[in-house]
Structures are given as structure tokens and as C-alpha cells.
Design a protein around this nucleic acid. Sequence first.
DNA 1: GTGAAAGCGCTAACAG
DNA 2: CTGTTAGCGCTTTCAC
Lengths: 333, 333
Amino acid sequence: MTRPKRPTVYDVAREAGVAASTVSRAFGNPRRVNAATRTHVLEVAERMGYHPSPLATALQSGRTATVAMLVPDIANPHFFGPIRGAERRAAAAGITFILGFTEESADAERDQIARLSRSVDGFVLASSRLPADAAAELAREHNLVLVNREVEGMPSVVVDNASGSAQIVDHLASLGHRSLVYLSGPHASWLAGERWRALSTGARARGMAASRLGPFAPQVAGGGAAADAALVSGATAVVAHNDLLAIGILRRLAERGVRVPEQVSVVGYDDIFGADLCSPALTTLAGPQEEAGRAAVEILLTAGAQHASGDGPRRLVLPSHLVIRESTGPAPA
Amino acid sequence: MTRPKRPTVYDVAREAGVAASTVSRAFGNPRRVNAATRTHVLEVAERMGYHPSPLATALQSGRTATVAMLVPDIANPHFFGPIRGAERRAAAAGITFILGFTEESADAERDQIARLSRSVDGFVLASSRLPADAAAELAREHNLVLVNREVEGMPSVVVDNASGSAQIVDHLASLGHRSLVYLSGPHASWLAGERWRALSTGARARGMAASRLGPFAPQVAGGGAAADAALVSGATAVVAHNDLLAIGILRRLAERGVRVPEQVSVVGYDDIFGADLCSPALTTLAGPQEEAGRAAVEILLTAGAQHASGDGPRRLVLPSHLVIRESTGPAPA
DNA sequence: GTGAAAGCGCTAACAG
DNA sequence: CTGTTAGCGCTTTCAC
């Protein structure tokens, strides 16, 4: 591997018979250069194989043309959508995309932000585990956009959990269920709180009993304990914090000889890859997760304009819809 | 969001009563500074909240402390392992991790490499779609390490497909199958070639008939056409290019009322998330994918030492093993 | 519209 | 072991 010496603005300037600053403008400020000059400079640059150094540009201008996305755990297929959407949007804008995993830890999140802050223009925080005050604090010094998390004063894009949870309750009620139990995710999870709130509100409105158990690890492995606890509760419908947990519950139920949906109905959140593979196929709340990642980067890229407009931070709520498969059915008589 | 002015080497130098270069050394070349001086400088820096600018360091030194990983498609859970392993290894070394998706296109791969080459110290190419000569060509100017791909003269780490494919043939033979069909992945896929070679060699050694069909899209959606083609072939065992395709095949077979494994046995590759969820659960070749990603970054980070040692590029082959689930059974009588 | 000059924050010789 | 001196490649005033 040998790195050939690359041409600089000066090389191009000399060759094109202009000043280095003109070359710079030709690339970065097209309108501040005579069109003809610009074309000529670009031709020469092309011929010489010149490409601006992102590093030097960033050092001088302060703009890095890079965004970072921080995700709790890549092993959860749920994050595919947001990651992919964010990467695509960044790539489309010629923006470099940095990905970091935080292992479900708020500290790791903080560390990564600190470490990367000089190298990026902003961060997309997916399902951030940061406490609201810590997030708001960080938002003062960094450009942050939240995905599937909301914090007062910060821009965010979420898939609608309130309406989604209401859809779940409606579905269950229409099947004759009189009680449900929510098997909750981590305490630090904002989503868990949101979901429970909407679920219990909706249940009350329909005269259903609702209880919350947990926290459980939001992974397939967490399903054992969750299923056992759910059975004890006596509820005929269980709503799991996410599909991973729901799949784990399905397994445990099968092991214990409990039939789904005849004896118990099971619902998940996210509609991850695999939700329609398991048996019975999982009823779950789906949403435009890829779009959420895309929109987050979009907001990041237009952050300057937003601030200027004085509208306050943007908050996007994307519509969700319940996908009904085989894991939900009429309440047992 | 406001970026407070950050202290520079000069600020720290003044405060600590040393030269800027000493501050620089205290951080970058610990051994070239008196231990006491270093401690003092570090203390002052700490107190002032100084952190070196990665950009400036990179611009001056040429070392970016960043690696990029390029992956064909994030929608394929197979890549979770390598991505996660690579990210973790990078994070452990304090290296920034850039992730890019290439949408299964060799051109996109080339473009990304060109675009990022100034910003990173090297690339990990997962299941690269580049033709061997193009890859070798690029390797002359860039620091590249391949994952699940081998090219003469380039460092690589692969999960053992030869032995793995032999394990598959053995398993099938032991169940009494006399014929198998390989449902191949994309023509540009090196793995597809490797797998077919090993499969056909193994089959010949055992007196089994083996044929290859395809290419098929290595996704669940590709399973329809693949299953139909397999059925026509008359083989009692089908080996799919990867688990995604295998899962698609399982579905199509179920739709057509073909019982697995009673009438046909199905085997996949990769043991992705979901392989044990589907029904019947999939028999598939598993390997330490996360370790592969980890090792690739490891090689990248020690590339300098490797070159110096004159051993030639490192080639790691990680052991694979067949996970037998429910999709394979005795050949029909 | 274009050029000259002054750095962005850091490291790498080269002296001492 | 430490200080001095030049830049890395680019953008950005400020003149013209």
C-alpha cells in the first residue's frame, strides 16, 4: 500500500493560472466565482485528480460534513431501520456516517459524544438511554437529534406510540379481552414509560384491567421470566415491551404448553425482522423506522435553518399501525 | 447549541510552563517526555478541559485514528456479527468507526473508498462485491482487509466455508440423501463460488449427485423462485446460499404443501438471527462472525507491523460448525 | 470577481 | 529531554 502524493489547492491553482483561494471557492462557494473561471478550475482539478481534503476543510471551516449515530445495541434488529435510513440520508448528502454502539449505557453514550464531538457536525441518538436532564444539558453544547425518544426542548422523531398503544388496546378489546399485562423494558427506557402510559390510559377507557410487570431485559432471553410472571398475573393478553421480548415469551409459553392465542394473546412492538417468522407469527406495532432515521439526519442537516427560523426544535411523530398476525385471538371463555 | 472556545496545545503549554511540542508529546509520545513533566502537563490539561483535536492531529500526522467498514446490505442480519465485532474492536482502541452500505454494488464500494480514503486509516470490506483484480488494484493505494472474501495478496479473515460445506455434505449423506442442489447467490459473490466448489467436491467424494441453480437474490424474497427450481431438480436436499434465501425457500415450500424435512431437507449458511425462529427451525452453518469483524480491525491496526515483518498479508480462517435443527431429516424412501 | 496573507490546532524535524 | 520553527491543506478576511 503506497499513498501517492495528492495534488493540493496550490497545485491546481498554479496549473489553472489562478489563486488558491479561487480554487477553494470553485469547490465550496460556486456563486462567488465567475462561472467561466469555475468551469476551468474544475476541469483542471478533474484532470489532475484533485479532491479537497475533508480533514483540512474541517479544520479550517469547523464543518466536518460528518454525522454520528449512537445506538444502544446492534444485536436488536429493531435498529436496522433507523440505521439504514440515517446512513442513506447521509450518503445522499455526501455526509460521512459514523456509527457507535452504547451497550445500553448512558455513560457510554456520554463518552462517545465527548470523544466524537470534534469530529462531527451532530449526533443522532437512537433510543437514547440518557436521563432527560443529561440529554438537555448535552444539547446545549452539541447538535443532537433524538429518535424514538422525546425530551423537552430537543428535536426528535418518534414513531407514534400513543396511538399505536391505543390500537393495541382496541384490538385486544375487540377480541373480548378484559385484562392485559404490560411486560416492561428497562427502567431507563423512555419508550417503556410512554407505552405503559398509553396502554393503561387506553385500558381504563375501555374498562379493561391493566398491570405492569418488569423490568425485563428487552431481548429474547428476557422472555422466560417475563412469560412466567405474565402467567401468574392471570391476564389473558400480554403486551411485550418489544418484539425480541415477545418472541422470548412465545418460546417460554410453548415450553410450558400454553397455547397462543387460544389461552393467551401476545403482542409486541417494532415489527422487527423475524416477527413474521416465529410461530405463531407475532402481532406487533409497526412503524416507518427507516424513515425515522432518515428524518433525523435531515433535521440535523438543516439544524442551522431551524434555529434561525425560531420555531423551536422540530418534533416529528410518524404514524404507526398494528400488524395483526397469529399471536392474538379471542379471549378464552 | 453553543460551542464554547476550546483550549489548544498553546493554552495548555502556557499554563503548564512548557512548549507546545511538549504538550503534544505528553499526549502522543509518552516515552519521549520526562515522566514528571508529562504528569504535570496532563494535570494542567485535565484541569483546563483540554482534549486534542482529532482533525488537527490527523491533518498534520496523516494518521486519522479512524477505520471504515463497508457492508453490502444492512438489512441482512448476517452482517450484525462482523459489524459489531469491528465496532467493538475499534472502540476498544479508541478508534472512530465509520460504517457504509454499498447496496450490493461494486461501484458504490469503489466510490465510498475514494470518498473516505482521506479520512480513514483503512477499510474493512465485508463480503466485498469487487472483482478480484479491482480489489487488488485498490489495495495498492489503500489499507484494506477483507471479511468473508479472499483475494490473492490481500489480508483477509473468513469463516471456513470449505470445511463447513463438507460438514453439510457429510450430514446430508449420513441421513441417506443421494443428491443435493445448491441454490446459488449472486454471480459476483465470491462466497457462492467457494461454497459450490466445496459442496460439489464433497458430494463427488461421497458419490452424491450435486447440481447448482441460480443465481437467486440472497434474500427472503428470492426463496420463491429458488424453491420452485429446486423442486423441479428432483433433489432431496437443498442447500441455500444463505439463511435469508433458505427461509424464503421454507416459506414457499410450505405454501406448496411440501413437507420439510419429510420430503425435502433444507440447509442454510450463516446462522443468522431468525434461523431458529422459523418453522421448521433451520439447519445452518454457524461461525464466529463477530470474531471475524474483530480480527479484521485488529489486522488493520497492526498493518504497519505486518508489512514490516515481511510475512505477507495475514489470512485468517475461522472454524465453522453445522447447527442441526429441524429442517434436515432422513431422505425420503 | 480575484488575489495575498493569515491562520485552524497540531506534530515533526532539528537544534540545543 | 525540551524548545523553536515550519508547515499539513484548506478557508477566509481584506484589499484591489
